[in-house]
């Protein structure tokens, strides 16, 4: 029973990751956008947490790294919003729509928003899985 889940996880994980990136990058053409893309990427990592070994999850993702990454992306998002007042009219604005290089601001904000939602769901899934291990040294005190 475990062999089936392990093999299926190894095959399915890059496919779901690619699907999430596709929905987030083509956010200004097809329906989708930032939020469903982040949830789908979170589903991919949830599958990894269930199907893989427990010790390998413990070694890869450290809590401080995820929190620092999330903080830096939040600052990056604020920088993009502030920059919108300066060069609003001249960024990626072609008139032939339904192309990829035509979003304006929504092209960047879809990718970053999807990444932020992914980090949030990753923190929640990580907190549920790690209740059976004692706290490590590089966690917050």
């Amino acid at each position: 029973m475990d062999a089936i889940i392990r093999t299926a996880t190894r095959v399915l994980f890059p496919v779901i990751l690619l699907f999430g990136i596709y929905i987030s990058v083509n956010g200004h053409i097809t329906p989708g956008g930032g939020f469903p893309a982040g949830v789908i990427l979170g589903t991919a990592f949830l599958l990894l947490a269930i199907g893989a070994d427990e010790t390998s999850i413990d070694a890869r993702i450290s809590k401080k790294n995820v929190m620092y990454l999330k903080g830096s992306f939040a600052i990056f998002l604020l920088l993009i919003v502030i920059e919108g007042y300066i060069i609003r009219n001249n960024i990626l604005k072609t008139q032939d729509f339904f192309e990829i290089w035509s979003g304006g601001f929504t092209f960047f904000l879809n990718i970053i928003g999807g990444f932020m939602v992914l980090l949030g769901i990753l923190i929640i899934v990580y907190s549920f899985i790690m209740t059976m291990y004692p706290p490590r040294e590089d966690d917050w005190k």
Partner: peptide, 22 residues
């Protein structure tokens, strides 16, 4: 409303079921 349909399916199928099972 295709945006909300994708979001509902992804959230319910992925995260909420996990929380209930735990």
């Amino acid at each position: 409303a295709p945006d909300i349909a994708i979001t509902q399916a992804a959230v319910i199928g992925g995260v909420v079921t996990m929380i209930f099972v735990v």
